[in-house]
Design a protein around this nucleic acid. Structure first.
Lengths: 310, 310
DNA sequence: CATCGTTACGACCGCCGTAAATATG
DNA sequence: CATATTTACGGCGGTCGTAACGATG
């Protein structure tokens, strides 16, 4: 910050001597002499008593220096903070993530990140993908964690991990017998047609899982017997466990959920069974280091959860 | 204080809009645009996110504004203090006075002055006239209260009041019979010759009363029988009261002193019997009001004490 | 008389305003 | 297309340095 006036006066006050002060300020002595005179003229009151060759503060000068020193101190503090920002040690990360994904992906990541980057101000917004996308576009968020499939192409993106979109079937349900198990595949496989005529429990319209589900149903001409719309995914899974019906659910979510009764998970035999989770952000020359690190942490944690290490 | 940079950034941050900010700052909008760009270039980091036509603070900008606001606040405080100094409501008065005179003249004056001028910083130095005169010349004091007779002519001065230089004689001493009483004179009058051959109690060499005393003795060729030198004027007067000898003493001092036994006071029949007490200070265009008031208070209090109203 | 402060003068750079071009919604 | 921002350019003033002058101790 520009505080020339304040630096000049404080330095002269400390030196009590024009020549030495001018030296310290890297300007000529006449320049400083004129500068101080003009300043005093402008203030309408002398800051220094010219006692022969000595410069001593007047009462007004004392007050000036009192405040000027504070300002210089504050300027130094700002410079320190700025250099932290410049060196990527410090900054701001406003993160957006869907409610459901946040619940399982973030807790540990947050803790790690905050202790690693104590000077980064981390804030979180949760909501559906449309909402987050708007905020990102308006620069109210710096990064959002979403499914890569339904994301605007104008944003830069970084792939984090993939997650399965699975069918959850209660124990004793007829669908269990239709699953085919292949080697090397963690889940049994169901053909999409098997879902035809089933009782389906589903999230609400604005959640992105529901959107994907309906796309699949249209494409493979699946007509469930009935769709119950329930907001809470926890409740849906609980009802599935109780044998009320089946549901489509993200793999990761099943990992952190404790079922009251057994629930079996199956892959659908379609290309859409996998979804890619990405971090999206506005294009920049170079991302801050803490932002790269956040994506690293999210990627690692995502893979950990997928591998079942909770 | 010059804080253009800080004002510009803070105003723009508040407006979020170049045009309005430039209006408020009384400069053209292009000027502000360029100014901010240059500032950001110089800092090496943007302070604002140009979100279309909106200007929103970056993290660095937030920190800048945080400190800049403090500085602007401090600058305002200084301006207030300065205007007080300019209007003579506030300031500094470094007062010098002899030890003895201070004791009787100042106590009530100080109290009055401080309540009348709460924003004036009043400090006091006590010492003999040489010492005070040096400090005044070196601008370490703003005003000294001394006898006008032995004061350098280079200083401006204001007459405060006159005080008698009296002879103190114990009860029952032969000198009492030599005094002549004239109408309209508060004290009996002694001729200087009467002091010849007396036992004299006197202050130390460096006190100005002693100097005056010796000048009188030389001029009128007075030879005391013996001079006892004692530092404390209180002790001297006490010894006079006990009949040990006589002394020369300032009128005012006798007023505040309680004698164990009666002491009579006489005027000397010489022009030097009166001394003028003045306030002395460096020449200035115009004295601050509080300085004029201090002299008023001193004058009034001096006359009060001389009149015997303690 | 050596050192320090002030005055005089010319040069440069930053800031400003006007006008034109460009971007935004 | 109206409004806002950026770019371009010429002018002014503040700040600087060198040199000469004046004051101080």
């Amino acid at each position: 910050m520009e505080l020339k006036e304040q630096r000049y006066v404080c330095t002269l006050a400390e030196c009590g001597n024009l020549t030495r002060a001018a030296d310290r300020l890297y300007i000529s002595q006449p320049a400083l002499s004129i500068y101080i005179s003009n300043l005093e003229k402008h203030l309408g009151m002398p800051l220094f008593d010219r006692q022969g060759k000595k410069f001593e503060l007047t009462k007004a000068g004392e007050r000036y220096v009192h405040y000027a020193r504070k300002m210089l101190e504050e300027s130094n503090q700002f410079d320190e903070e700025l250099s932290m920002l410049l060196s990527d040690e410090s900054g701001r990360l406003r993160l957006g993530i869907s409610l459901l994904r946040g619940a399982w992906l973030l807790p540990r990541v947050f803790k790690t990140f905050c202790s690693k980057w104590p000077h980064v101000e981390l804030t979180l917004r949760q909501g559906n993908i449309m909402f987050l996308d708007d905020l990102l576009k308006n620069h109210e968020l710096d990064m959002i964690i979403v499914n890569g499939e339904n994301l605007d192409k104008s944003m830069d993106r970084r792939e984090l991990f993939q997650e399965e979109f699975l069918v959850a079937v209660p124990q004793g349900h007829p669908l269990n017998s239709q699953a085919i198990f292949r080697e090397g595949q963690p889940y049994g496989i169901l053909s999409p047609e098997a879902l035809d005529g089933q009782v389906l429990l589903s999230t609400t319209q604005e959640q992105s899982s529901r959107e994907l589900q309906e796309k699949i149903f249209r494409k493979y001409k699946i007509r469930p017997q009935h769709i119950y719309t329930i907001r809470s995914i926890e409740l849906i899974l609980q009802m599935v466990a109780e044998g009320f019906g089946i549901t489509l659910v993200r793999e990761a979510f099943t990992r952190i959920f404790r079922y009251s009764k057994a629930v079996n998970l199956y892959q659908l035999d379609i290309p859409e069974h996998k979804r890619t989770v990405v971090a999206a952000f506005h294009h920049r020359e170079k991302l801050p280091r803490y932002m790269e690190d956040m994506m690293d942490l999210l990627r690692k944690r995502g893979l950990e959860i997928m591998a079942g290490r909770l």
